[in-house]
Write a protein that binds this DNA or RNA. Structure first.
Ligand code: FES
Ligand code: FES
Lengths: 155, 155
DNA sequence: ATCAAACAAGACTAAAAAGTCTTTTTAATA
DNA sequence: TATTAAAAAGACTTTTTAGTCTTGTTTGAT
């Protein structure tokens, strides 16, 4: 008999952030096709709860990552010329803030080289590597293989 | 004006797991000095809520990571010969389960090479690197610099 | 034997994250 | 200008994570 889980599902990004990234990729992919898309469609295509997705999209609009057009025929879109400018880092920061980038892995009040926790020296390079990847990965990179059907946003 | 955080504090480990790791390190450090320690002392030294710390220690006992001695003069300890055998991976798995090790970074039901999400190929090596580090880092490694006062468990 | 100092167990509460619902605003179009 | 299809806004609910409290059990020392 295995002990059941004790604490939270622990991943890099919050669930909210996961939805946000998936939604942004889907919108970009449609935009690259000249199409605008609405909440219902997005929620269906990325398998996310519809009203919650609405909330998240609002936040992405405020953070200037996606554009929204209100009214009949409206929806969300991203101008193609932004694809290379928008990085994964931007989405993560907009939703999860910068804890992932700064916080001590063991929960000390500060992560610092001067007063490091016992895991700091092994953790820091991993985090730096993750940061670099998030900084270097653009929406253009993310939709490339998605458009060709080689990566997935659900299942 | 900056937008306030929208979602959870996102780090690798749950807060519970952070406490667990800090507590284990502290206990090991005392044990390496031949000393046994109680909940109150541990909570004080790692700056964690006392009753919650008790809960977490219980879990670590069940997972066979630390030993507990009940009754007057009791407390927690870890036999020195275990220091190199106990890995960070063991603590993380005992508390957070294996989501960190398996879960898709974008929240798809499965993380797989066959039906990868758009971030999979960039994410996987980072995660593998983290896993390797957790697998390779033993309690002995963690307490080394802590015993010499070069790393910290609070502030 | 009794007492006191420890951990164990489990019910309970609080806070944060995730998710829903209702109302308002916007804008194209008939 | 009325209708309608969309997003925006904000109050609300649920679930999960974090944390507390009370009661019981164990055991060394008096
Ligand atoms: S001090 Fe803990 S990760 Fe830097
Ligand atoms: S499928 Fe998403 S990280 Fe592997």
């Amino acid at each position: 008999m295995e002990l059941p889980n004790f604490a939270q599902i622990s991943t890099m990004f919050s669930k909210t952030c996961e939805y946000a990234i998936r939604a942004t990729i889907y919108i970009a992919s449609e935009s690259s096709d000249g199409k605008r898309c609405g909440i219902k469609e997005i929620a269906r295509k990325i398998e996310s709860p519809e009203p919650f997705t609405g909330k998240i999209l609002q936040r992405l609009v405020k953070a200037n990552i996606i554009h929204s057009i209100k009214g009949n025929g409206g929806g969300f879109e991203i101008p193609q010329e932004e694809f290379t400018k928008i990085k994964m880092e931007d989405i993560v920061r907009a939703i999860d803030g910068d804890d992932l980038f700064n916080r001590c892995s063991l929960g000390l009040h500060e992560c610092s080289d001067d007063q490091p926790c016992p895991f700091h020296h092994k953790y820091k390079p991993i985090r730096e590597n993750l940061k670099k990847t998030l900084r270097d990965t653009s929406l253009a990179d993310l939709i490339l293989k998605f458009n060709s059907g080689d990566t997935y946003l659900k299942l």
